[in-house]
Simulated scan of single mutants.
Amino acid sequence: MPSDPPPSGPALRVAVLADLPNAGTACAEGRRFVGEQLWRWEVGLQVADTTELVASELIANAVRHGRPPLRLALRLHRERVRLEVTDSSPRPPLLTRPRLTAIGGRGLWLVDTLSVEWGSYPEPPGKVVWCEVPVAEPLLPMA
């Protein structure tokens, strides 16, 4: 997992949910936000579904292991969707392989599997955890 964000160039579209609740409703609110934005931006359903799933996992980790405030940013690029979740804990995420009998612990494994790239970087007082989901067909620049 890289510790710094890759160069991503200018985004075609950006949307931010600046005050994500640190509660049980956070994942649902984040998924709804991501789904609505990607629908507005006319991103395909499969890409939107995948992005909603990884958003849910990153938000769940921020709620479980991080501290408020939580923030969700979505950036649409020509060939990918970048998702960023910010929390106030400086501890970086750790990708592990849970035992088959474990009830949880598969969130980052899903993010690692479904994203073309993911990582984290410090943003005092905490960190940003990001991932990028490929867009099946490169998007034309939006006016």
Rank of each mutant, 00 (worst) to 15 (best):
L70T: 03
T113K: 12
T25P: 06
L76Y: 05
W109G: 13
A143L: 15
G30D: 06
V81G: 06
W118N: 02
L83F: 02
E84Y: 01
D4V: 07
E84I: 05
R75F: 10
P68C: 11
L114Q: 03
G35I: 03
A48M: 11
R91G: 05
P125H: 06
S56T: 08
G119E: 07
D49R: 04
Y121P: 00
D4K: 08
G44W: 03
V16K: 01
L76A: 03
E117V: 12
R71S: 04
L70W: 11
T50H: 04
I103K: 12
A23I: 07
V129W: 07
P122F: 09
L110C: 09
Q37P: 01
P2L: 15
L83R: 04
P124M: 03
P134W: 05
I103N: 10
T25Y: 10
A26F: 03
L53F: 13
V116D: 10
L139S: 04
R67Q: 14
V34F: 12
R82C: 13
T25A: 15
A62C: 10
P124Q: 06
L45H: 11
P5Y: 12
C27W: 00
R67T: 07
I103W: 04
G30M: 05
G44R: 14
R71T: 07
S89V: 08
A26C: 04
L139T: 00
V133Y: 09
V135H: 02
N22W: 13
L38G: 05
E117C: 07
V85L: 10
L74P: 10
S120V: 01
P6F: 10
P2E: 13
L139I: 09
T25R: 15
D4I: 07
V111F: 09
S56I: 02
L95D: 11
E29D: 12
A23N: 15
R97L: 13
T50F: 01
D87K: 01
C27S: 12
A28P: 01
V111L: 03
L58C: 00
S88P: 00
R106Y: 12
A28L: 08
V129S: 14
L17V: 04
D49I: 00
G107S: 09
P92D: 06
D19R: 12
T50L: 08
S120L: 04
G9Q: 04
Q46P: 05
A60G: 03
G119V: 04
T86V: 12
R80D: 02
L76G: 02
P134S: 09
E84L: 06
V129K: 02
P138Q: 06
G66H: 03
W41P: 07
P141C: 08
L140N: 07
L108A: 13
M142Q: 13
C27I: 10
